[in-house]
Design a protein around this nucleic acid. Sequence first.
DNA 1: GAATTGACCAGCT
DNA 2: AAGCTGGCCAATT
Length: 106
Amino acid sequence: KPDLSTFSHFDRMVMKAAMKIPMGRVTTYMALADAAGRQKAARATGSVMAKNPFAIVVPCHRVIRSDLSQGGYFYGTEIKRSLLEAEGVKFKGDKVDKEFVIEIHG
DNA sequence: GAATTGACCAGCT
DNA sequence: AAGCTGGCCAATT
């Protein structure tokens, strides 16, 4: 069971922003970093998702790279793509269709 | 406080 | 188009 007190302020801001992504939509690591108040911290944002224990309440599979390629996933990239397609997100080759990408305001 | 570690990004080739 | 490079940021050790 995860210990909530171990999360930093930055961790919480990122996860809070990530929770706003609705089903069937995606956003980018960059956008989350921006919403968390650290515009240039996209890489650090990826690290937050990587260790996030809330795969259920925080839809971290809906976060992709800024070039719209899907990016990584702790449980495996195939799983990530399957989850997205199951929600109705469409791909064009290895990239997510632009119309499914949203911005987050934080 | 330095070095290491990533689910990243932009520019260049 | 696909791979490399240097930069970036926060957490961890």
